[in-house]
Simulated assay, not measured.
Amino acid sequence: MEEPYMSRIGRVLMGVALTLAGIAGPAGAARADATGAACEVTYRAFRYTGGFTAGITISNTGTVAIYGWTFRFPLDTSATVVDMWNADLESDTGTIVAHDLGWNADVLPGKAIDIGFRADGTSGTPSSFTVNDLPCQVAA
């Protein structure tokens, strides 16, 4: 008697999982519509002896939502990122690459996300930033 009941629950859960997978798209996919996509980055560094922390605000200034993002920016080769928050760190030296964490993957037009990191070494302010390989404007 319990087995058919469990089967119905399993079927319902499988249907929900498939529906959510269809909405979210492929796992790890970084998608943005190139037409109407635009971003602006505010970078704030706080230096201390031996390293620095940085706070980064990434604003969607375009007219389309960003569904999943990969964020890239260069740091001096003397700097190594040792901790990052609100993003999944892929590379920690040279060109820094970070991805959304799922819960912060969608950035609607007019909205922003905040990420940050702590690094050993020194680095100037990065000269460029990209989201999904599209260049971002650097806030003044």
Rank of each mutant, 00 (worst) to 15 (best):
R72S: 08
R44A: 13
P26G: 05
P4V: 15
D33R: 10
V16K: 06
F71L: 15
G116H: 07
W85I: 05
V138Q: 12
A140Y: 09
H99N: 15
I66D: 07
G36F: 03
Y43A: 00
L13C: 11
A38E: 06
D88K: 15
G102H: 09
P135M: 04
A139P: 02
R8G: 03
S78G: 08
F73T: 00
C39R: 03
A24R: 08
N132I: 02
A27C: 01
T130I: 10
Y43F: 04
P74F: 08
A98R: 14
D33I: 02
V64C: 12
N86G: 02
V97G: 04
V131C: 13
N132G: 02
I115T: 14
N86W: 03
S59A: 10
M14R: 14
Y67I: 05
V81W: 14
F117D: 01
D33K: 09
N132Y: 10
I96T: 06
P26M: 09
C136L: 13
A17W: 15
S128Y: 09
S91F: 03
V64R: 07
G124F: 06
F71C: 08
T53R: 05
A37S: 10
G22H: 12
G28D: 11
V138G: 01
F117T: 14
S91L: 05
T95N: 11
L75N: 13
T125S: 06
K111T: 12
T42R: 08
R11T: 03
I9F: 13
G116K: 01
A37H: 05
A54Q: 00
V81P: 01
I96C: 09
I113E: 12
M14Q: 11
W103K: 12
G15I: 06
T130W: 15
I58F: 01
N104R: 11
W103G: 14
G50I: 04
A32Q: 15
P135K: 04
V97T: 09
M14F: 03
V64Y: 04
T70M: 07
I113T: 12
D92V: 07
I56H: 02
S59N: 05
A112P: 00
W69M: 14
P74K: 11
A54D: 06
